[in-house]
């Protein structure tokens, strides 16, 4: 490829991959690649930035830490997990990508992700769109009224927020209440028809998780804790993650 040849020098002390292996159960099978190419066949990000999952894994295995912690490819990865799903050796490439993301200085990570995560941290909704708990309540109630009226068969339908003792706690991608509120309704209808006892939370309803995609563990933990604590305080038994 015109590039200078890579020089192998035996085992390097404590490479990036070794660190990841320590964290993962069974070392994430990171050593076990058969180079069959299934991961790269199935990956939607194959070929972007001249990278593919198999190459990424091999570079990590060879201790090419600088390359794998600097390739912007890790941000093209959608974390869809297809590579591990089709891998005959069940190699946890997604986690390797995740830790590679984490090795980037926060401020150098993609702007969109930083902004979305920061926004989620700024409000109790955990909404990356910045929708406040009040805005959310207003949209939900307004929409519910509209549908109850327009579709008499759903006149008893409910979309509760902070209902104490509900069986299920639901979160919600905040794109819908902000830009496409109608898209929330089908799920309400299903839950209503199935007679499910559920609730949204005024706090932590925002289900999108940009802090995770940003690989910012601390922020991710904060947003998730906000949501889980709300569910707990309402006495909900099951947390339904709709994302």
């Amino acid at each position: 490829m015109g590039e200078a040849a890579i020089k192998l020098g035996g085992k390097k002390e404590s490479t990036f991959m070794d660190k990841v292996k320590e964290i993962l159960p069974d070392g994430g099978n990171l050593n076990l690649c058969l180079t069959c190419g299934a991961c790269s066949s199935g990956c939607p990000a194959t070929g972007l930035e001249g990278m593919d999952p198999r190459k990424f894994l091999r570079m990590a295995a060879l201790g090419l830490d600088e390359e794998i912690t600097s390739t912007p490819w890790v941000w093209h990865c959608t974390m869809c997990q297809r590579c591990i799903y089709v891998c005959p050796m069940k190699i946890d490439i997604p986690r390797l990508v995740y830790y590679a993301r984490q090795s980037w200085p926060r401020e150098e990570r993609p702007k969109g992700l930083i902004n979305s995560c920061d926004m989620a941290l700024r409000n109790d909704s955990c909404s990356a769109m910045g929708a406040s708990p009040d805005d959310f309540s207003f949209v939900v109630e307004d929409l519910l009224d509209e549908y109850r009226e327009a579709q008499p068969e759903f006149k008893d339908m409910d979309a509760p927020i902070d209902k104490e003792g509900a069986e299920f706690f639901l979160n919600q991608n905040s794109r819908e209440p902000v830009t496409e509120p109608d898209e929330m309704v089908p799920l309400w209808k299903i839950l209503h028809s199935a007679g499910i006892n559920w609730t949204y939370g005024s706090k932590g309803w925002g289900g999108e998780n940009y802090c995770m995609f940003l690989a910012d563990d601390e922020a991710w933990k904060n947003t998730v804790a906000m949501s889980i604590n709300q569910a707990k305080s309402l006495g909900c038994k099951t947390y339904l993650n709709t994302e």
């Binding site: 190419g37 790269s40 066949s41 194959t46 593919d52």
Partner: peptide, 11 residues
């Protein structure tokens, strides 16, 4: 069939 092309590095 979708497959990985080793030479090109693409699917």
């Amino acid at each position: 069939l979708r497959r990985f092309d080793e030479t090109e590095g693409t699917t």
